[in-house]
Amino acid sequence: MTSTLEPTQLAEAVAVAAAAALPAVTPLTPGPAQPGSPHVTAAFAGGAIAELDGGVPGAVVVLVGTELVEALAGSPLGALDLAAAVQPALDAAARRLGAHARGARSVDLDAEGFDVTAELGGPFSTVPLIGAGIAAAVLVPEATLAGAREPIADDAVPADPAAVTAEEPAPFVPAFGATTAPPRGLELLHGVDMEVTVELGRTRMTVRDLLALTPGAVLELDRAAGSPADLLVNGRLVARGEVVVVDEDFGLRVTEILDANAAV
């Protein structure tokens, strides 16, 4: 079943969904939907795009400001991927369109010849996301809005964006004027999903030995029994601890947090 909302209403509803999942220090409020312009990217520092699956055509773009880009680049764990940080917002936007988002990819807004209109396959609508200033924006092609379906089950975003914005109307900022937001720190990253891995040890093997592995084979690791296991976040060592069992599942009791130098 296709969406019952007008294109402008639907674009704002998609922005409501994305705003709830986008890392930000202060809550983001969607402004009014506007006709898209290829010059909109000049107001932002980075962005990510995800193609849609599920019978809905097109893609969705989320543009973000300098604060989030710098926070990801300056993370204590090393530079974090913008596309991964924005993926939950793109997933939420896609569900509101009755679709599923594919894996996001970052777009270089400063690349020579970059054209967001061509990236989206044609005319699009833009919805600013406003915090202390214009912190981000959601871009949705007109063809995607026309082909959207009813929200996917379990989507918590209200169908009527007016229900979200009626109490506090979003301010309209013409042409994405340069409203400067106050400096933001690592709080921006609080909503970013990170891959956490516990490593018991490592070993090196020749291809011959690897191919000779059979069920029941025992591999000797480079760590003595009883030694602490490593806790890695996005592949970076950040802590050590003891392996424990919690309700029949393995867990890790952290015994040591490593500083930045030790975690390299």
Rank of each mutant, 00 (worst) to 15 (best):
A33D: 09
A92Y: 01
F250S: 05
L252N: 06
A42G: 06
L28N: 09
A135H: 13
Q9F: 10
F44R: 00
L68H: 03
G251W: 01
G103C: 06
T126A: 15
V116L: 05
L77K: 00
I152P: 03
T29M: 14
V238S: 02
V233S: 07
R96G: 00
A89G: 02
A101L: 01
T29L: 15
A92S: 07
S227F: 09
A239C: 06
I152H: 07
T197E: 14
A178S: 14
T41H: 07
G31A: 09
P174M: 02
S3E: 01
V69E: 11
A175T: 12
G103I: 09
P123S: 13
E167Y: 10
R96K: 12
L28E: 06
A148P: 04
A50D: 06
A111P: 03
Q34T: 15
P38Y: 05
F176I: 09
L77M: 03
L258Y: 08
V40R: 06
P169W: 00
A92R: 01
G147H: 04
F172N: 13
V140P: 04
S3F: 04
D155E: 11
A73W: 03
T26N: 15
G216R: 10
S106T: 15
L145I: 07
T41D: 06
L258R: 02
E256P: 00
D81A: 12
A146S: 11
S125P: 01
D209A: 10
A50W: 04
A21S: 13
V107T: 08
A92E: 00
P76M: 01
R208D: 14
A59G: 02
V56L: 03
S106I: 05
V218W: 03
G78M: 00
V107Q: 08
P228G: 09
A166V: 13
P88A: 05
L186R: 14
A19P: 06
